[in-house]
């Protein structure tokens, strides 16, 4: 007795193959929609801002007159901001991830903390701004300084780095952990010599993605009260400062048409910095990638 009807199989073949091919085109279409919108956005911005991307623009402070307004203060301010955010966020996040994955007992409390760190990654940035305003600006009297804003952004991106670092650490096979432990290495020796080197590409990718988010973040800076026009650069972490996204946000609000071109120029600068940061991330990832 034949259970498989050969005619039916032959008949359904064409349909299956057609569906197979159309799915491929459907997914290609999905990719293209995103790509086209992105390219349009970038081309439009570059066309608008290119002519204003002059040396004067890069080296002048902000101004109410569009022809003399520049982005110097904002670039320097953003660099200062990242110089505070990056080390604080990296140390806190990688430390947290290592503790949760390698040291903490695997129980319900650890699980609860892990889940809630992932939840924190989804909290809107304006909420972190309010947190920064309450704790750093007011309670610790740091004012609208580089330090207050840097710490706020560090807290904001911490969950993202923790989650990425946890995943990278978890991806290190337990067999090499056992090999190291089995030779009498202490926990810290295993972590520092085996686990961290193997997890570093994943951790760095997480760090750079998080910092890219931090450098373009506007809402927390608005809440903290970062000034939009300032004629000095900070001399230390307790000074106030300007930031790229704040500057762009401010220009886009301006009534004069000229400012819209400055906005575009500012966005190009921000995109270039992001592009540079991502290139560094990809370079490091490729350099240290070791397959298991």
């Amino acid at each position: 007795m034949q259970l498989v009807d050969k005619d039916q199989v032959a008949k359904s073949l064409g349909g299956r193959q057609l569906l197979n091919k159309s799915m491929k085109f459907l997914f290609l279409l999905c990719t293209l929609v995103g790509l086209v919108v992105l390219v349009t956005l970038i081309v439009d911005t570059v066309l608008d801002g290119w002519s204003h991307l002059t040396w004067d623009f890069l080296t002048s402070f902000s101004s109410s007159r569009p022809e003399s307004a520049g982005i110097y203060g904002a670039i320097i301010g953003s660099v200062w901001l990242m110089a505070v955010t990056a080390p604080v966020a990296i140390v806190l996040s990688v430390g947290t991830a290592l503790y949760l994955e390698e040291y903490a007992p695997k129980n319900r409390i650890t699980n609860f903390i892990t889940v809630n760190i992932s939840n924190l990654a989804g909290v809107p940035s304006v909420v972190f701004g309010l947190l920064g305003l309450t704790i750093f600006v007011r309670q610790l009297s740091l004012g609208n300084s580089v330090l207050a804003a840097g710490l706020t952004l560090a807290l904001m991106i911490m969950p993202v780095i923790v989650v990425a670092a946890q995943e990278a650490i978890r991806a290190v096979p337990s067999s090499v952990r056992e090999a190291s432990t089995g030779m009498g290495a202490t926990k810290w020796q295993t972590v520092s010599r085996i686990i961290l080197p193997a997890a570093i590409p994943g951790i760095i990718t997480g760090i750079i993605l998080a910092l890219s988010r931090a450098i373009g973040e506007t809402a927390p800076l608005v809440v903290i009260g970062v000034p939009v026009s300032l004629l000095v650069t900070p001399n230390g972490v307790f000074d106030t400062f300007q930031a790229l996204p704040m500057q762009i946000y401010n220009w886009v609000k301006m009534p004069q048409e000229e400012f819209q071109y400055l906005t575009a120029a500012g966005i190009i600068i921000l995109l270039l910095i992001l592009f540079l940061m991502n290139s560094v991330a990809i370079y490091i990832r490729n350099k240290y990638s070791k397959r298991f």
Partner: peptide
């Protein structure tokens, strides 16, 4: 103890 008692595992597990 683990310095005196070495171990070889089931699957070869060299470090990368």
């Amino acid at each position: 103890l683990r310095t005196k008692v070495g171990m070889v595992f089931q699957k070869p597990n060299p470090f990368p």
